[in-house]
Simulated scan of single mutants.
Amino acid sequence: MLVGYARVSTTEQSLEVQLDQLAQAGVEKVFSEQRSGKRAANRPELQRARDFCREGDTFVVTRLDRFARSAADLHRTVEQLTAKGVGFRCLQQGGIDTTTTHGKLMLGILAAVAEFELDIRQERQREGIENAKAKGVYRGRKASIDRNAVKRMSLDGMSARSIAERLGCSPASIYRLAGKPAVDVLSL
């Protein structure tokens, strides 16, 4: 059986192109998700897809960067599939098919290239943020917790846990906002 996996990083992105490619490749069962792929642990559908695979199946993705974010992550996941007797195929990097010797070689080479590209992209992003900060343009993301509301609730005698529950955040966020370690009593 061909088992597919599709992923986009945000809810604003569409899975449609990947799903169409998987369908054209004859994939019978598809698992998909819209979430960041920085860590495999944060991708529950990937885990479900791997668990679903049985000996003799082939796990299919459209591109390596939709499946793994580092060479180590890629090799670890492919090794887990291989241990179950499951092959791995990547549609857009056509030489990758772990059911063949050449496919295994291509997997290693392209994984290293994909990791290199990710590192370069992250480096450029850091440089851009540093340049924006130097120009006074970068402000970071907007605060999600109203500091004045925290202060008012604290002055009313509410605990950090109660404030966090009311504002829909963690107590650690309240302590961080107050600039105090979690073991201290909240006082602003």
Rank of each mutant, 00 (worst) to 15 (best):
V3W: 04
G4Y: 04
G4T: 03
A6V: 02
R7W: 00
R7G: 04
V8E: 03
V8W: 01
S9Y: 03
T10S: 10
T11G: 09
Q13S: 09
S14T: 08
L15N: 05
V17H: 14
V17I: 15
Q18K: 05
L19A: 04
D20F: 04
D20G: 10
Q21W: 07
G26Y: 03
E28F: 00
E28H: 04
F31N: 05
Q34G: 06
Q34E: 12
R35A: 15
R35K: 15
G37H: 00
K38W: 02
K38T: 00
A40H: 08
N42H: 11
R43A: 03
E45N: 13
E45F: 07
Q47N: 13
R48H: 12
R50P: 09
D51H: 12
C53M: 03
E55Y: 06
G56P: 03
T58D: 03
T58Q: 11
F59V: 04
T62M: 07
R63T: 14
L64C: 06
D65N: 06
R66Q: 09
R66G: 08
A68V: 02
A68C: 14
A68K: 13
A71D: 08
A72V: 13
L74A: 10
L74M: 12
H75Y: 10
T77C: 03
Q80P: 09
L81I: 01
L81G: 05
L81A: 02
K84F: 01
K84Q: 04
G85M: 07
G85L: 04
G85Q: 02
G87H: 14
G87L: 06
F88M: 01
R89C: 12
C90E: 03
L91C: 05
Q92P: 08
Q92G: 14
Q93L: 07
T98L: 12
T98M: 08
T99C: 08
T100N: 05
T100L: 06
K104M: 12
K104S: 11
G108H: 01
A111Y: 03
A112C: 10
V113G: 05
V113Q: 07
E115F: 00
F116H: 02
E117D: 13
D119Y: 00
I120R: 06
E123S: 14
E123D: 14
E123H: 13
R124V: 07
Q125E: 11
Q125P: 00
G128T: 01
A134K: 15
V137S: 12
Y138C: 05
R139Y: 00
G140F: 05
R141I: 06
K142H: 15
A143T: 05
A143W: 04
I145N: 09
I145G: 09
R147H: 15
R147W: 14
A149Y: 07
V150G: 10
K151D: 10
S154R: 10
L155F: 11
L155R: 13
D156V: 02
S159I: 02
S162G: 13
I163S: 02
A164H: 03
E165S: 13
E165P: 03
E165K: 13
R166C: 07
G168V: 09
G168S: 07
C169S: 04
C169Y: 01
P171H: 00
I174W: 12
Y175M: 11
Y175N: 07
R176S: 05
L177S: 11
A182T: 11
A182E: 15
V183S: 15
D184Y: 12
S187H: 15
L188A: 10
